[in-house]
C-alpha cells in the first residue's frame, strides 16, 4: 500500500486539480490500489451524507451500517463502469492507446473530493456542499483524463460526457439486470422495502388518515406477509 506521505501528496494533487496526479496514480500498483480505496471510502462518505433516505425508510440501526457499506460498493462499481465507458469512448473516438486499469485508477482517485461527501448531511448547507463536491470531482476527473490521454480539455470533457451517456444507455438496456441486482442488494441490506424516489418519500411523511397525526403505514419489513 502507498505510504502515508505519498498518499497525502496524491490526494493533495487531486484536490488541487494538478494534472500530475494522473501519471502519479498509474505509476505503481500501490497507487492504483490506493485509488480504489479512495473510491470506496468516498462512496462510504457519500452514503453517509445521503443517509436521510435510510432514515426516511425507518431503517433500523443494525441494518443502517450494512446499508452504508452496500451503497458505498454500488457507488464504487458505478464509477468503475463509468471508467469503462470513458475507456471505450477514448479508444474508439479519440484512438487513445491506454488500458482500462489506468483510466479506472484516474477516475477512482478523482473522486477524492467526495471523501467529504458526509458533509451533505449538514442541515440546509448540505445540498450546496454536495453540488460543490460533485462539480469538484467532475473537474478532477476531466483534468486526470486529459492528462492521462494527452487530450485537449474539450476532448476530455467530451470523452467524459459521452462516457456518461454510454453508461446511462447501458443502464437502461443491457445493464437492467445489474440495476435490479443493485436494488435487491440495497433492499436486503436495509431490511425494508426501500423507497427512493422523491414523490414517494414525500408520501411516506405525509401519509396519514386526516385529521390528526396517526402513524403512517410502516414500510413492510422483509419476511413479513
Amino acid at each position: 500500500m502507498l505510504g502515508p506521505g505519498a498518499a497525502f501528496e496524491l490526494l493533495t494533487s487531486v484536490l488541487q486539480l494538478r494534472a500530475g496526479f494522473a501519471h502519479a496514480v498509474v505509476g505503481s500498483v500501490a497507487a492504483v490500489r490506493f485509488a480504489f480505496l479512495v473510491l470506496v471510502l468516498a462512496g462510504l462518505s457519500e452514503a453517509a451524507g445521503e443517509s436521510v433516505v435510510l432514515f426516511l425508510n425507518r431503517v433500523r440501526p443494525r441494518y443502517f451500517a450494512r446499508s452504508l457499506v452496500i451503497n458505498a460498493l454500488i457507488f464504487a462499481f458505478t464509477f468503475l463502469f463509468l471508467a469503462a465507458s470513458i475507456w471505450l469512448v477514448a479508444r474508439f473516438a479519440f484512438r487513445a492507446e491506454v488500458g482500462l486499469t489506468p483510466i479506472a485508477a484516474v477516475v477512482a482517485v478523482a473522486q477524492a473530493p467526495r471523501l467529504l461527501g458526509f458533509l451533505a448531511f449538514l442541515p440546509y448547507f448540505g445540498l450546496p456542499v454536495s453540488v460543490l463536491l460533485w462539480t469538484w470531482s467532475l473537474l478532477a476527473t476531466a483534468r486526470g483524463v486529459a492528462a492521462l490521454l494527452d487530450l485537449a480539455p474539450w476532448q476530455a470533457a467530451a470523452t467524459i460526457a459521452l462516457g456518461g451517456l454510454l453508461l446511462l444507455t447501458m443502464q437502461r438496456t443491457v445493464g437492467r439486470p445489474l440495476l435490479a441486482l443493485a436494488r435487491l442488494a440495497r433492499r436486503r441490506a436495509a431490511g425494508v422495502e426501500l423507497v427512493t424516489d422523491r414523490a414517494r418519500l414525500r408520501e411516506l411523511v405525509d401519509t396519514a388518515p386526516d385529521p390528526g397525526f396517526h402513524a403512517p403505514r410502516a414500510p413492510r419489513r422483509r419476511g413479513e406477509a
Partner: peptide, 20 residues
C-alpha cells in the same frame, strides 16, 4: 451541526423507542 438532524431523523426512524 452535522449531528443536529439526528434527533428529528432518529425520532422518525423509531430509534428512540417511540412510535410516530
Amino acid at each position: 451541526l452535522l449531528l443536529s438532524p439526528i434527533e428529528t431523523l432518529g425520532w422518525w426512524a423509531g430509534w428512540y423507542g417511540q412510535g410516530l
